[in-house]
Amino acid sequence: MTASAVLYHPVVVFTLCMMAGWGVYALGRALAPASRVIGGKLKTYACGENVEGESFPTAYHLYHAAFIFTLLDVVALVLGTVTGTAIVWMVAAYLLVGLIAIVILFKD
């Protein structure tokens, strides 16, 4: 393992970039005026209304899309990680699963 092999590893690159982003924060901290908390400055922004509460209920109506996404994404990942001649059969199977999934989605 040479130094460059380690430094180009995705995890290491990601960490370095996180540090670079933190550098942007540090620059901002140097440039920005000190924070003055006056009145409702830290309150949740809701068009000026005074909302209390730390989380807000959401209704979700796209479960079928989430289902299809999970199905296809997992299969795509499996497909992406196999190599060699098996690939064409994997593609065929994948096509089948994908088409069935889409048919189910738009059945009604």
Binding site: F14, T15, C17, M18, A20, G21, W22, V24, Y25, G28, R29, A32, P33, A34, S35, R36, K41, L42, K43, T44, Y45, G53, E54
Partner: peptide, 23 residues
């Protein structure tokens, strides 16, 4: 000025943009 709302999760609020940029 930098503002973190009182009900926000401080760590997540601060780290989320960094994750996006680093990725």
């Amino acid at each position: 000025e930098d503002i973190i709302p009182e009900h926000a999760d401080r760590a997540m609020f601060a780290v989320a943009p960094l994750i996006a940029l680093a990725g």
